[in-house]
Simulated assay, not measured.
Amino acid sequence: MTKSDTKDLTLLGNQHTDYHYEYSPDVLETFENQHQENNYFVKFNAPEFTSLCPMTGQPDFAAIYISYIPDVRMVESKSLKLYLFSFRNHGAYHEDCVNIMMKDLVKLMDPRYIEVWAKFTPRGGLSIDPYCNYGKPGTMFEEMANKRLMQHDLYPEKVDNR
């Protein structure tokens, strides 16, 4: 990445970061993919995600996994951290959180492929692990998304009560 690639980024290296305590997709920033000729995964793991239960207002905690194959634009990581932080006081069900994230990132980057998976800690003895994905329509990535969705939980990981 060169200096010209980052000229439009306002958060990277900014020592006076403004934290949004309410859901804010506007904080997301992108930069140009320098390897558009390659198909490759970019993976983010956010083990300290929090949001609020819309019914009780109690906090929900999760590890969020975002994997995507970029096309022209890529999400800048600090802006993604701030975006995830903006869910802190946002009331949304677990399934809503992952679908909102995926849709916001698709709108932002128009990736070839993306998936978002959350592993929420148990509440009331039950954990919820929603997964969603998207493949660019009319491409091999649309087919990939369908296959990954159908095979997503064929081999569930060991449950360890997180």
Rank of each mutant, 00 (worst) to 15 (best):
F61S: 05
M74I: 13
R73T: 02
M102L: 15
K81A: 08
H90Y: 14
M101K: 03
F61K: 07
D60I: 04
A63G: 12
I64G: 00
I66R: 01
I100F: 09
N89A: 10
S67N: 14
C53F: 08
F85Q: 12
D60A: 07
D60P: 00
M74V: 10
P54D: 10
S86H: 02
R73I: 00
N89D: 14
E76R: 06
A92T: 05
P59C: 11
S77L: 09
L84S: 06
F85G: 02
F61L: 10
D96C: 06
G91E: 01
Y93L: 15
G91M: 05
C53Y: 02
H90W: 13
A92V: 12
I64V: 13
P70R: 10
L82A: 05
D96K: 15
D96E: 15
K81I: 03
L84T: 03
Y93T: 06
D96Q: 15
I66K: 06
L80H: 01
D104L: 08
N89F: 12
C53A: 11
A63E: 14
I100A: 00
N99K: 14
S79T: 05
D104A: 03
S67D: 13
A62V: 03
A63T: 15
V98Q: 00
K78L: 04
I64F: 07
H90E: 15
K78P: 04
R88N: 09
N99M: 12
S77M: 09
A63Y: 05
R88A: 11
T56R: 07
S67K: 15
I69L: 09
F87Y: 13
Q58L: 14
F87E: 04
M55S: 13
M101E: 03
F87S: 06
D71A: 15
C97A: 09
D60N: 14
L105W: 03
S77H: 03
T56M: 09
K81Q: 12
K78W: 04
H94R: 08
F87M: 11
Q58G: 00
E95P: 01
I64Q: 00
S86G: 11
T56N: 08
V98E: 00
I100Y: 08
D71Y: 12
Y93V: 08
S86A: 11
G57R: 09
L82G: 05
P70M: 09
H94C: 07
L84V: 08
I100E: 00
K81S: 10
L105H: 03
P54G: 07
Y65T: 15
C97I: 14
N89Y: 13
C53M: 10
Y68A: 10
P59D: 03
L84I: 14
C53V: 04
